[in-house]
């Protein structure tokens, strides 16, 4: 039983910005280019766009619909919809969220170090990758990681999300403008064409089962799907809110930022003679070089890493809020202690990731490649099978200016789960470890 009131979004703009804030973060700027670079280049975009339509947008309508109709987070939503042992399955999104916090806050820690580095200028000098190498998987990464966890805990514990959301209203558009400016600059660099070819002209021989699996996990992760945050967001929606149009806005808006990040990064990668398969450090190695090449790069740099940091922080706050709510609902703890407890667990899980690249990779793979699609699958089964496809569609259509036709029912009920299952099975059969 929910022991605290569910606030509802006061304005549509507030809701849109909050959803974009949840959906836009490090996954667009840091993870998307990494995945594209390491998993097929332009070929990755094919399953990515397919999954955006088949899984992503539909998934948002499912999870918001589930959250709104059941008026609660994962446990209440799964159980309320009638999913067997829903209260227990609803714990899965919380576990995933804590794992995500553990690695995500490490990236946020890198961003914070880079923010300081752009202010001092240290991040924009030296050999390519030197500044990144000075923090990533070095002992000092633990410090930056802990700072971001503590900051997130403070914000959630003292309920100052409002302040964060208000700054997000400035930071998100700023990040968006900056990425666009950087993209325009990047494509004009000498050597950029090779990067554009890599990013846009698919080599179909690279489209392996593994690429499909990673693309699925990326599209689910970047949209905050997986039975957790988006279900909670849905529970804050009013019946007069337009789920369908909002889902399109958030889903494509999220894609816009990721695509623009690719336009900023890949031409620069090739212009500066770096490898697109560099892995998780790709954005942090290429973006400083790009900024250095821009007139006024120091200023752009500060603005970029400041807005990136805020984008990441709004996401960690959203994630931690979801888990904290779960702790409060189940254990009836005080908010402060619940947040501190969640932060402590995330810290314990994340510190090894600060210094060990293998562990870092494993935690990302377990949470985003394997567990997240499963949790998304359960949310869909709960809404479409347990609650009922017809009722689900009727609910989603409430408040919507576009009526989803009957096609949505078999799509959400059969195709959506089937796609997830098939891709996961392919992953298992191919023995993919990410």
């Amino acid at each position: 039983m929910e022991i605290h009131e569910r606030p509802k979004w006061r304005t549509k703009t507030g809701f849109i910005l909050a959803s974009m804030g949840c959906a836009v973060g490090l996954a667009n700027i840091w993870m998307f280019p990494w995945r594209v670079g390491q998993y097929g280049g332009a070929a990755f975009l094919i399953p990515y766009f397919i999954f955006l339509l088949v899984i992503g947008i539909i998934g948002i309508t499912i999870e918001w619909g589930l959250g709104r109709s059941q008026d609660g987070g994962p446990q209440r939503a799964f159980a309320g919809a009638g999913f067997p042992a829903g209260k227990w399955w609803g714990i899965l999104p919380y576990i995933i969220a804590v794992l995500v916090l553990a690695f995500y806050s490490n990236i946020l820690g890198w961003s914070l170090k880079f923010l300081v580095g752009t202010i001092t200028g240290a991040a924009l000098t030296g050999e390519p990758g030197q500044f990144f190498g000075s923090v990533a998987f070095q002992p000092e990464a633990i410090m930056w990681f802990c700072i971001t966890i503590v900051l997130t805990v403070l914000i959630v514990a003292f309920g100052v999300q409002k302040g964060i959301e208000m700054s997000a209203k400035v930071m998100m558009p700023l990040l968006f403008v900056l990425i666009t400016v950087m993209a325009i600059w990047s494509v004009t660099l000498p050597g950029a064409l090779e990067g554009l070819k890599f990013y846009l002209i698919p080599d179909l021989s690279k489209l392996t089962g593994e690429v499909w699996l990673i693309a699925l996990s990326q599209s689910i992760f970047t949209l905050s799907l997986g039975g957790g945050a988006m279900v909670v967001y849905g529970s804050y929606m009013r019946k007069s809110d337009d789920i369908t149009i909002s889902a399109i806005s958030v889903g494509f808006g999220n894609t816009v930022i990721a695509i623009m990040a690719g336009f900023a990064i890949f031409p620069a990668i090739f212009a500066f003679g770096l490898s697109p398969e560099a892995g998780p450090g790709l954005a942090f190695v290429s973006i400083p070089l790009l900024l250095q090449s821009m007139p006024g790069g120091a200023v752009w740099g500060v603005m970029f890493f400041l807005s990136l940091f805020f984008a990441g922080l709004t996401s960690t706050v959203a994630i931690m809020e979801v888990v904290t709510d779960g702790v409060i609902d189940n254990l009836h703890w005080d908010r402060k202690w619940a947040a501190i407890c969640v932060g402590a667990i995330a810290m314990a899980l994340g510190i090894p990731a600060s210094i060990n690249p293998g562990y870092f990779d494993t935690i990302i793979t377990i949470s985003t490649v394997w567990m997240l699609p499963i949790a998304g699958l359960i949310a869909a089964l709960a809404f479409l099978w347990s609650y009922g496809a017809k009722k689900a569609r009727e609910h989603v259509n409430m408040g919507s200016s576009i009526t989803l036709g009957k096609w949505w029912e078999p799509w959400a009920k059969y195709i959506y789960p089937l796609v997830i299952i098939v891709v996961l099975v392919i992953g298992i059969v191919l023995g993919i470890s990410g």
Binding site: T13, I16, L193, L196, I245, S249, G253, T255, I259
Partner: peptide
Amino acid sequence: MAAVIVIAVVVLAVSWGPFIWATVKLMKSE
């Protein structure tokens, strides 16, 4: 070069188009 431009335009249109359409529609209905 031409292929790059064509694909770039398509990718940008496919991502920006629905985003702008949906966001404008949402703002108008407020």
